[in-house]
Write a protein that binds this DNA or RNA. Sequence first.
DNA 1: CTCTGTGAAGGGATTCACAGCG
DNA 2: CGCTGTGAATCCCTTCACAGAG
Lengths: 217, 217
Amino acid sequence: MKRNKLLPVKSIERLCLYRRVLHSKASGKKKFIFSHELASILNTTSSVVRRDIMNIGYIGTPKSGYRIDELLRCLNDFFNTSTAVNVVIFGLGNIGKALISYFSMRPQQFNIVACFDSAPIKVGSTFEGCRCYSIKDFSKVAEQKVPQIGIISTPASAAQEIAETMESSGIHSILNFSTATLRTNEETFVENVDINVLLEKIYYFGTLNKEVSANCF
Amino acid sequence: MKRNKLLPVKSIERLCLYRRVLHSKASGKKKFIFSHELASILNTTSSVVRRDIMNIGYIGTPKSGYRIDELLRCLNDFFNTSTAVNVVIFGLGNIGKALISYFSMRPQQFNIVACFDSAPIKVGSTFEGCRCYSIKDFSKVAEQKVPQIGIISTPASAAQEIAETMESSGIHSILNFSTATLRTNEETFVENVDINVLLEKIYYFGTLNKEVSANCF
DNA sequence: CTCTGTGAAGGGATTCACAGCG
DNA sequence: CGCTGTGAATCCCTTCACAGAG
């Protein structure tokens, strides 16, 4: 793993949030925003905000701050979201359905183009406009829909094979809700969302040690 | 935020995973496990494993490695899981239901004792054994059920008020699936799971920059 | 030998602090 | 005076490297 010229993960996460805030303010009357305003909205510090914005190369103006429209455009370019990104979901269980429902109302950024399940009863059905295919048909569907992101919301036992299938179709961005530890190529980025780990973690930091918080800056 | 004697967040996350692996191996015939075995299973390095285990104070034996049963007991003590932790969920939408379904089959560690929703049609109903209450009744229910963890799976607009309600009832561990940036007391630990941020992130690291991976060690 | 335990080095991200500009 | 931009310091985590034990 060589993270050559890439921005820090944390910085990327925050930049997403700046984008959301700016988007919500883009139609307002205010044309400029200060680093400390963004910081206050997102519970961080102005230093962090300035550093992050510096990282993506945008230059604000002293005294007046950042132009909202320009910075927003800069962030949009940075995240390369001129067209919606195609997403596929493996596993039409509760999580899969939750994601499809969520994005069916917000098709601007991410477009869930297909879902896959191994249960014959689900294959061929349509959930909120999203067609469910057999996992066996993935490569065919992938050729047609050209997904860039894959989400795994299957039991852990199926996860590794699915990850490999996705990789062989050129998907290098995987969001893994299963408890499996995926083994992937170096160029694939996997993010694990493990509900047990999340709960253990917040329980540890919130309950076992009262004097701590990670939410504040 | 003073993270006094606390272990690093990343270390905590990994320790959860060690526990899961050890648990699955506890009934096997092998009595010992090496740091490099754990590392290989979880896609990390033996250095990391040894450092993490050192952090919680367990001492292995050179040559034979770690006693699986002892290390597991040590981890259980560390995470203080002698009894199930009580969890409440705000918002009986898709995510809320997914979580209830998931944990209704695994009541050992985390026990979802109640859920809350503002929709009158949901209040009073029961989903997979979990009773849905009005948010207004939270403090009454909380007195009875003594929840230690709260999960927010409502729209962002309701999140801040819910977080404050939870805090006033003594919950200091919050898992936030909404897009709201919560403002909480210092002693409360908030973990945000923002699906948009997650997807942006994996898209950035997986698609925009092919030469990178964060899954490998 | 092959393991663990751990001080020390290294690398990354955050924070500090201040120059420079309007 | 605000504010931003940014080198430098700091802090935290990971990695290295090796002593010590069996």
